[in-house]
Design a protein around this nucleic acid. Structure first.
Lengths: 210, 210
DNA sequence: GGGCCCGTGGAGGTCAAGATCGGTGTCCAG
DNA sequence: CTGGACACCGATCTTGACCTCCACGGGCCC
């Protein structure tokens, strides 16, 4: 009776799995990897721990499934944004919007990717680095096409811009979205575009001052 | 005999403490917070666990001591760098150099600040956020002095540049310092300066496109 | 030169959390 | 109607790590 209470329904495997992923994401996002226990996730999902282990072999396995989902989502958004135009300035605009959209997406899931407290695990680190590398690659291609710098320099600049987008978007969330989203995007896109356009530095590292 | 082996020396308290901090930093940096045990640190320092607890009340206490040290060091470097000149462009240059110097400092200690896997702890988060806020404040003051944007916008731009510096410097280390340090700094400083100078966006969020 | 005292070390307590077993109820086929 | 199988759950096991207790040895004072 009690055991057959309200929530006690038999779900198809795939649906149950999706529900578990959703619950796990919520808890991981709010408390981080280390601070969340499997009990927390099970409680959140309204199931018992064994069912968790029937769908995921370990806590790390569950976490990696989530991480993969978010990471591929971000990369897809970036790629799509940059494919949307042929004008490089507009590309930067769209890419910046993609970052803000991603960070602004439901549930602050971006924390899984940008603020993981499990980067020391090789599998997690591999995914995070791969994702960052893909973002950098997309942008550095554009930089190389638009300027005269070589691959190493372009990647460094691209990394800087990726970092700028990431950190600025996170702060935008943390500060309660004080600046309107469109304006924030415009601001950061302008910063990025002015930063990278008109490279190379007029003949090497020395930038002409005025 | 064995117990009075080579390393068995009585150190003054402050010296012992410094040694423990050094050992702890090495282990924390290489393995992260959660993956390092107090035994590891004690072994690394060549002492036993009780002495560790005579100097630090808990693992977190020890970690916070290290974190405070590195964070104040970074902030001091930034402040000093920006006080070194009155020309805002040169300030950005020096600040960027300060970031690279910090990240380039011995032992990759920057991981404690930038890649902590303990940000979910309130005390740790408080320190990291305060440090980031101080860096942002220093830069946003300069931005506001040099451009026409208000505080919120200036802080967003400053956050972006802080993120750019941080992520680019970290990647510079991770990629094996392929680009010479001075050139990397010059590259990123130019990106930053071109990004923020000549704001405001010609009258609001809409940048005149063509 | 001997006793006291403080710093040191190994061994252990406790507890949280990841990972797993016997029992149970429900659904379906014949 | 009935028997079986599947999915689920409470309770448990174990491991590992943070944090203290009992023996030991060298320095200080009389």
């Amino acid at each position: 009776m009690n055991s057959a209470g309200e929530g006690r329904v038999r779900l198809p495997r795939s649906e149950r799995r999706a529900q578990l992923l959703q619950a796990a994401q919520e808890v991981f996002v709010s408390r981080g990897y280390h601070a969340t226990s499997m009990d927390d996730i099970a409680d959140r999902a309204g199931v018992s721990k064994p069912v968790l282990y029937q769908h995921f072999t370990s806590k790390l396995d569950l976490y990696l499934a989530l991480l993969d989902g978010r990471a591929t989502e971000l990369v897809a958004r970036i790629r799509e944004a940059m494919d949307r135009s042929e004008d490089n300035k507009e590309r930067v605009n769209q890419a910046m919007r993609a970052y803000f959209d991603f960070v602004d997406a439901q549930g602050e899931a971006f924390r899984l990717v940008f603020e993981s407290d499990q980067r020391n695990d090789p599998a997690v680190a591999e995914r995070v680095l791969r994702m960052e590398a893909e973002c950098v690659a997309a942008l550095s291609d554009t930089i190389m096409a638009d300027t005269q710098v070589d691959k190493d320099r372009a990647e460094m600049l691209a990394t800087g811009l990726v970092g700028a987008a990431e950190v600025a978007a996170r702060k935008w969330i943390a500060s309660g979205r004080v600046v309107p989203k469109d304006e924030a995007i415009q601001l950061m896109a302008t910063l990025a575009w002015r930063g990278i356009s008109h490279f190379p530095l007029e003949g090497g590292a020395e930038s002409g001052n005025e």
